[in-house]
Amino acid sequence: MPTIELDKKLTRYLLGDLSEQERIEIEDRYLSNGEFFDELVVAEDELIDDCVRGKLSRKDRELFEQNFLTSAARRERVKSSRALMEFADMHAATPHVSWWRRVRSAFKLESPAMGFVLATGFMMLIVGVPLVVIQMSKLRSDLKGLQSEQLAQNQREKELDKLVAQQKQQNDELNQAINRERAERGELEQEVARLRELQAPPPTFALGFGEIERSKGGPPEAMKLTVPRGAEVIKLRLDLLKDQYENYLVVVENAQQHDIWRGSLQATKAERGKAVVVRLPSRLFVTGQYKLTLSGTNDKREYEVISDFNLDITRK
């Protein structure tokens, strides 16, 4: 018997819609034949499913309720079938298609070799892309870190430069202040010395024209000066060929090139032209070598060296 006809007959049997003779034939068959019994249970599943899906005719529906739903077990099976249909419809609404099948269908590549190539490429893509992204992200982060570090370093350097410049300016200002102070002090000392000269004239030394001496070439010869015992001040006269500066600066350095005295002076009238007369406290000196530098201030208030004098001083 063809399958469709057999299915129909089994359905009629399950619905109690066969003659006595037909029913006995079917029962004898399924009770003795395992495969036929399987046909029966499958037909029963499908009858229940058709009922749940509402596919039974009105007559079959009545037969189903009257002749089929006779046991609690069968009623239970109908409920389970309803749940099964709902479950299948629910999950089939979002059909599960494997990613591999999607890739294959997307590229329409069915040959195993191409599939392998594609799979390898795809895997490399899956593995590689995140790695590259991670690496790039790390590099970008490192670069940002370095940039910000460099920026901070530049900022620090700028601040340090600024600080150094400020410090240097402060030092310059301080030096200028000190020099000014010392020059003023020198002036005061000159004034005091002049007043004392009225009581006791100090030993005076004429150093000559330093500029002329200098123009002779060669190392200038040290002038020997002796400071007499009891002299508080010594007077040095620096003759000028030409009085072309408004102010003059005299700086005295010891053998260690330490600036031991400086004073801002003006030229005075001397026996032969103009001269810068310097009055120095004798306490500044011990026996030894000294250097005196005479400078003049120009229009820009900058000092220009006029002459150097090497002094060989002896104290008595």
Binding site: Y13, L14, G16, E27, Y30, L31, G34, F37, L40, V41, N67, T70, S71, A72, A73, R74
Partner: peptide, 19 residues
């Protein structure tokens, strides 16, 4: 057990409430 299953179905198909 196989016989039992078949007999169960037999009684069930003959409208027995407690096969």
């Amino acid at each position: 057990l196989d016989i039992r299953r078949k007999l169960q179905k037999f009684f069930e198909c003959n409208r027995c409430p407690d096969p």
